[in-house]
C-alpha cells in the first residue's frame, strides 16, 4: 500500500518542485521576457476567453484531430500492407525512406501553394507528418509478429482474413501504439508551424502575432496552451494504449517492471 503511494509520489516530486521553483524564482523577476509565473497564469486566464477559444483554439484542434485521425487510419493500413509483403517493402523503400526523412516543415510552403491557407491545408499536413511514424512502426510490428502463432492458426484452418485480424494485427499492436505516440509530437508541431506561417487564426498565429506586437504576456499564454494541447493529446494516446493493450502479455510485464 505504502509502496503504491511512494511510486507516483517520487515521479510527481520533480514536476511539482520545478513548477514551485519557477513560481518562487520568477516572483520578483524584472526581466521583460521572463515574467513571474503568477503573471503568466493571470494572462492565461485573460487571454483565453470563450470567444478566443472559439476563434483560435478550436480551428487548430479541429485540424489536428482530423489530420491525426486520417494519419492513424492510413498509417496502420499501409503499414500492415508493407509489413506483410517483403517485396513491396523493398520496392517502395526509396520512396518511404525519402518521404519519411523529409523534414516535414519543408512541405508547408507546398501545402500553402497547392491547398491555400486554411484548415484543409493544416489537416493535410498533419496527416502527412503523423502518418510516417505510425506506418514505419506498424510495418515493423507486423513483420515481427510471432511466426509460430500465425502458423498454428493456419494449421487449425483459420482463414487468412481472420488470421490477419485476430493474430497478426493484435501481435503488432504494441509497436503500432508506440508509433502513434511518436506521431503526436510530429502532429502538434506541424499544425503549429502551419498556423504560424499561413493562417489568420489559430494557436500558432496567435503566438506569432503576439510576439510580433511584443505582447509578452499573450505570447506566454499561447505557449502554455500549445503545451496543454500537446499534453492532452499525449494523455489521450496513453489512455488508449492502456485500454487497447491491457491484455497484452509483453505490455503487462512492462507495466509491472516499470520503475
Amino acid at each position: 500500500m505504502i509502496k503504491k503511494l511512494i511510486g507516483p509520489a517520487t515521479s510527481l516530486a520533480a514536476p511539482v518542485t520545478l513548477v514551485a521553483a519557477w513560481w518562487i524564482l520568477s516572483a520578483g523577476s524584472t526581466s521583460p521576457y521572463f515574467l513571474p509565473l503568477s503573471d503568466i497564469v493571470d494572462g492565461f486566464q485573460q487571454t483565453w476567453t470563450t470567444e478566443r477559444m472559439e476563434d483560435d483554439l478550436l480551428p487548430t484542434v479541429r485540424a489536428l484531430g482530423v489530420g491525426f485521425a486520417v494519419a492513424v487510419v492510413t498509417g496502420i493500413a499501409t503499414g500492415v500492407a508493407l509489413g506483410l509483403s517483403a517485396r513491396a517493402r523493398r520496392d517502395l523503400r526509396p520512396i518511404t525512406e525519402f518521404l519519411r526523412s523529409m523534414p516535414v516543415v519543408a512541405l508547408v510552403p507546398i501545402g500553402l501553394v497547392v491547398l491555400g491557407p486554411g484548415q484543409r491545408m493544416e489537416a493535410a499536413l498533419v496527416a502527412f507528418a503523423a502518418t510516417w511514424p505510425i506506418l514505419v512502426s506498424t510495418s515493423d510490428g507486423v513483420r515481427a509478429a510471432d511466426r509460430v502463432m500465425i502458423d498454428t492458426a493456419r494449421v487449425y484452418g483459420v482463414s487468412a482474413r481472420r488470421r490477419l485480424l485476430r493474430v497478426t494485427i493484435p501481435a503488432a499492436m504494441p509497436q503500432v501504439m508506440a508509433g502513434v505516440r511518436i506521431a503526436v509530437a510530429a502532429a502538434v508541431g506541424t499544425v503549429i508551424v502551419a498556423n504560424m506561417l499561413a493562417s489568420s487564426s489559430g494557436l500558432g498565429y496567435l503566438v506569432i502575432s503576439a510576439q510580433q506586437s511584443f505582447d509578452i504576456q499573450e505570447t506566454w499564454s499561447g505557449l502554455l496552451m500549445i503545451g496543454l494541447v500537446g499534453s492532452v493529446l499525449t494523455c489521450t494516446v496513453v489512455l488508449a494504449e492502456r485500454v487497447l493493450l491491457g491484455w497484452h502479455r509483453q505490455y503487462r510485464s512492462l507495466e509491472r517492471t516499470a520503475p
Binding site: G7, T10, S11, L12, A13, A14, P15, L18, P32, Y33, R181, V184, A185, V188, G189, I192, V193, M196, G204, V207, I208, A210, Q211, F214, I216, T219, W220, G222, L223, I226, G227, G230, S231, T234, P259
Partner: peptide, 26 residues
C-alpha cells in the same frame, strides 16, 4: 532516475516549436 523519467518523457512530447516566440524575444 525515478524522479526524472516521467517528467522527461512528458517534456519531450511538448512541441518545442512553442518556445520559438520567446527565444525570438531573447
Amino acid at each position: 532516475y525515478r524522479m526524472s523519467y516521467l517528467t522527461l518523457e512528458f517534456v519531450r512530447t511538448i512541441p518545442g516549436i512553442a518556445a520559438l516566440p520567446i527565444l525570438l524575444f531573447i
